[in-house]
Design a protein around this nucleic acid. Structure first.
Lengths: 189, 189
DNA sequence: GTCTATACACCGATAGAC
DNA sequence: GTCTATCGGTGTATAGAC
């Protein structure tokens, strides 16, 4: 089965970007890693910037897809949030390069190149869930943005800790469970 | 009073790096912004990489200095931690460019260019404080790394929220106070 | 669609005068 | 210490054949 060349390029770019950063990764190297010529790369992605942004959007949507699938089965809010948490963490474990890339991208000037509503598309579902939980008295009556920030920040930092410390599976599950409880203790009413 | 040229370069680099990123900021532009020639820039900083790293270390030490001063006056652990929290947040408000730069730097391959012990130098004091508090039963008996991660992540994310939402001073103080309480609730025994 | 070859701008760094 | 001038290398992107 022949893999789509566009996908090959994204895959190659991801690998190199994570190792060397956006700069220090010439398009020529990406083409080489993808097993195609430089001309072909620019046939698919008119500029390097567009390649970088396309990769980001691609990864974002993959993660969002995974999360949506996993939370669809739950109905209780705490369980939904825990699924959100564990799915994100487990996805990051299986996609370390993707996670590192997003991290790099998020704190780079490239972020400005993405339309605001493109970002909102991915955060809106969680924010709605949170708003409902606040209204129902499940969560503390905190500002929605702060609530969102707290949860994202908590998830992000535990993610980093897990990636760096590389605990065994059993230990890892323990950490995830414990830190979710801490988060829940902080935000639940 | 004539400002040190080295300092001028760091100041100029900071401004441009935050706006355009490390790449997309040629040394020629930095020199121009600093009001010196390209040759002089390389007289002070042999390579661009060294300039970037020097800027990072400079900012790190400034923040650390500020924090150390502010916590020196306190003795109660909760108050020390709160000082740590508020000082970091207030410093970031007055040094937004510095904060954004560090954020960009931390998630870039440049980070590898800094020796591990150079980083540890700045985190060790807080870790020792935390270890003592755990031993004394003030904080939950959590893994030290997790505790540290939780606090850093919380601080970092609230910082970002404050920078983006730009609340009025009174509102801002309220947020800082409230979110510290949330953090404390999460980690205290 | 894919390749090869190349244009050409740009940037980091150096040389050498003052 | 500071400047001007410039070199060599590299990287994005294009042209044009197949």
């Amino acid at each position: 089965m022949v893999m789509d060349k566009k996908a090959k390029v994204l895959e190659a770019a991801l690998k190199l970007f994570v190792e060397f950063g956006f700069h220090n990764t010439p398009t020529s190297k990406i083409a080489k890693e993808a097993g195609i010529s430089s001309g072909t790369l620019f046939y698919f992605f008119p500029t390097k910037d567009e390649l970088v942004v396309a990769l980001y959007l691609h990864i974002k949507s993959e993660l969002a897809c995974e999360i949506n699938e996993s939370i669809a089965q739950e109905s209780d809010f705490e369980k939904i949030l825990k699924k959100y948490y564990t799915t994100t963490l487990n996805w990051a474990k299986e996609h370390i390069a993707e996670f590192k890339f997003m991290e790099q991208f998020n704190s780079s000037p490239y972020l400005k190149k993405i339309a605001e509503d493109e970002i909102q598309k991915y955060v809106k579902p969680l924010k709605e869930l949170l708003q409902n939980a606040v209204n129902e008295g499940i969560l503390k009556n905190l500002d929605l943005e702060i609530l969102f920030t707290l949860i994202s920040g908590h998830t992000f930092s535990i993610n980093q800790h897990l990636i760096i410390s590389e605990p065994k599976d059993s230990k890892r599950e323990q950490i995830i469970s414990d830190t979710f409880d801490l988060l829940w203790q902080m935000i639940s009413a």
